[in-house]
Amino acid sequence: MPARYAMVIDTRTCIGCGDCVVACKTENNVPAGLNRDWIVEATRGRYPNLTTEFRSERCNHCSHATCVYACPTGASHYWQNTNIVLVEPGKCTGCKACIAACPYDARLIMHPQGYVDKCTFCHHRVARGQDPACVSSCPTHCMHFGDLNDANSIVSQLLDRRKSRALKPETGNQPNVFYLS
């Protein structure tokens, strides 16, 4: 069975430091101003009864990736039949249908070249058995990566054990980035 890669991020320990964002930038040489991942801070309540949550967000590498389905040329594709969604610049026309199709606004245009870019789950590292750069840099160790089709993987175990949620599952995209609470 091809892997179903997932990221599981523990909001109990995430401090929103942004190390994952810088690690992604340097690992993948992402041009200034463009971001494949980012941090959202969500504060609810009224002083002094508050909760604040930090979320490191990126492409959800959806099992039902509407971006892949929207692509007219096959540039957006699943990597080796896993759920990792990649863009092949040599096939991308820059029509931006995938950008419109992503409910998480996780795609971007590479300027000045013009093709669409996005988080790759660092598949070049995954292929070597390493975690994505963001996961392996996180100083609080709040990020985890693995294969949900492997019941023994850290991500499977965490999702079994802990309460979790994905972002906007109601989109039907079956996102694969999960947040533990």
Partner: peptide, 8 residues
């Protein structure tokens, strides 16, 4: 592990 600034 390095922190945000160390990575930068």
């Amino acid at each position: 592990r390095l922190c945000t600034r160390g990575t930068g």
